[in-house]
Amino acid sequence: MRTDRLIELLAHDAGPAPRALAARRLSAVALVGLPVSTVLALAAIGAIPAPMFATHVPWMKLAYGAALACAAAWLTARLSRPAAPAGSAWRATATVVAAMAAVGAASFASEPPGARVAALLGHSWLGCPASVLALSLPGLAVALWAVRGLAPTRPALAGFAAGLFAGAVGACGYALACVETSPAFVAAWYTLGMLATGALGAALGPRVLRW
């Protein structure tokens, strides 16, 4: 086929370009990932006691997860567009993590010295990152599907951003089943679980995000 014939083929009745393509595809991550991770967390671990919703505990975790999900979704969208600068989105993502780290550090410092390590480790520090990662896997599959339909030119970075986004969504589900109360715990172990999901996305990116 000659190139002018291909151009004819592509242009004929092509219609307008799809609008808000990245937003539509990436919103599926939250629409699928949030209910799935919530149901899995409640089924596998069980819901936190209802009175806890009157405290700041679940809301702090949900706010962190939601804020990081927004920042990481933005970052994913930027990295899925050829030639789009992603600096602001990286800074927003780092700011959310740094803000939680600051709150966690302040809470850590305000504990009496003897109780600090106990507050940081809680009773589930080992299981928390693994649970967040596991609950994020359905969202990660959707996120990689979403990015695959866009045009990431740096697949490892795009995979990382997609994983971080899925991890933040999964962490929101886990928050409904996690009874840990310390901000230091959230800043350390939730973050680790979300970063692990990001790392998995980065590892899968170069294989999965080819186009």
Partner: peptide, 10 residues
């Protein structure tokens, strides 16, 4: 050209 067409939403 095919990629430009398929990705024009990006």
């Amino acid at each position: 050209l095919l990629a430009l067409h398929l990705q024009r939403g990006t």
